[in-house]
Design a protein around this nucleic acid. Structure first.
Lengths: 226, 226
DNA sequence: ATTAACTTGCACACCACTGTGCAAGTTATC
DNA sequence: GATAACTTGCACAGTGGTGTGCAAGTTAAT
């Protein structure tokens, strides 16, 4: 089936692995320091700086791919929220995003530091729209605070989630708990109300249903079989 | 009285003004971009890059002075809080810090971006201790949330204040209001409780008692007399 | 076994920035 | 009005980064 043209254009397997390795390395390096050098990233991926430029035109291209990757995950999370109760929707959204903490770190770092502001903003637009919708519904139903205008509250929720996930402990067992409670508090609930709500829906804080962390999505070993 | 030695060592008046101008320019420039170049700062102050190095040994020395300035203000604010009710203490602290918003911006920017982490941390230690104390008292008196450990809650309060002040609108009339309510919410109060509390103590959200903004604290004119 | 893909290391030009030396000009101060 | 303080502009060396070209080596795929 594979025409000679396809065969000629298909990249070598090791090249694909290396490309994925670069992205993974960039993930780590940029989360730690959003302006890590191309050399540092390449080296962390076990490659030379020169080889990296064989995979990405540009430092910018690499960053853009990372942003796209993260945005896709976030927006998938946003789309999966379907609770009728806006309070539960918020809680579940926060919990789900916490599971993507590693990606939040990179995105947040890039968004804050670099000149990629517009880019990340558009990439995350669906997630933002979800938050806005939940907040609006919650205010209409009078279950979320109404002393703060809708758009402002949405922004506040977003910033709170980002802050807690990126700037507090990061991966302690209680961190997800904290992220969820912080968001509910900012949304207007008292801490006891939040506690009651979470007590009634223990699945929100339960260990993630998702399969651990598929950190390296493109590991060739299992595909190769034997 | 002025001994010849003093006279010889006293800097020229325009030099003092220029030094203050550099600090003001750095204030603006670094809040906008924490790694603004020395040239950009000097130019914004209406001086040449070369002249700046006549006033500060080093880019670092300039930043350090800025940090010290800000820290002094913050710690003065922290020391001025004396409410018996921890909830009021928190609210007033947030409101007072909002009045120093401009300084918060620079400090936060510097603290986040540069390698001045330890420096800013030690400079702000008194403020941090104040928050820890208020939170502890509040938890002991059962008026603040107890589902989050004290140190964590203190950190959360601090991050919330920083986030709201530096990342939301910045200077709208409702911004102080928002900062105060966000802090109370994070501390565990429901939005209605916070509203009631603030309604009972309108002075917290009233226009600041302090005289506008004494932007240039070290004007030599009044000290010189006549 | 051959071929094309991939990687490496090096050299290079380029950029933006820091910090310093120095000669020449301007300006507050006595 | 003399003097010392201050500023300017320029040149310079140094640092750390980006992106490219090229020759030589290695390695996956056919």
């Amino acid at each position: 089936m594979t025409s000679p043209i396809d065969a000629a254009r298909r990249p070598r397997r090791d090249a694909l692995e290396n490309r994925a390795g670069i992205l993974a390395a960039a993930h780590v390096a940029l989360a730690h320091d959003p302006r890590a050098s191309v050399d540092a990233i390449a080296r962390q991926a076990g490659l030379s700086r020169r080889a990296l430029y064989g995979h990405f035109d540009d430092r910018d291209a690499l960053v853009r791919e990372l942003v796209a990757q993260g945005a896709a995950r976030f927006n998938a999370v946003a789309a999966s929220i379907d609770d009728a109760d806006p309070r539960l929707a918020l809680a579940r959204l926060a919990a789900s995003l916490w599971n993507e903490a590693a990606h939040v770190q990179v995105l947040a770092a890039i968004a804050l530091d670099e000149a990629h502001l517009e880019e990340t903003a558009t990439a995350l637009a669906p997630l933002r729209r979800t938050v806005v919708r939940i907040v609006r519904d919650g205010q209409d139903a009078d279950v979320l605070r109404t002393d703060v205008a809708g758009p402002t509250l949405a922004r506040l929720v977003e910033e709170t989630a980002r802050t807690v996930i990126t700037r507090i402990d990061a991966s302690s067992p209680a961190a997800r708990d904290l992220a969820v409670r912080a968001v509910l508090s900012i949304a207007g609930l008292s801490w006891r109300e939040a506690g009651t709500l979470l007590g009634e829906h223990p699945e929100i804080l339960a260990t993630p249903a998702m399969p651990a962390t598929p950190a390296t999505p493109a590991t060739p070993s299992e595909a190769a079989g034997a």
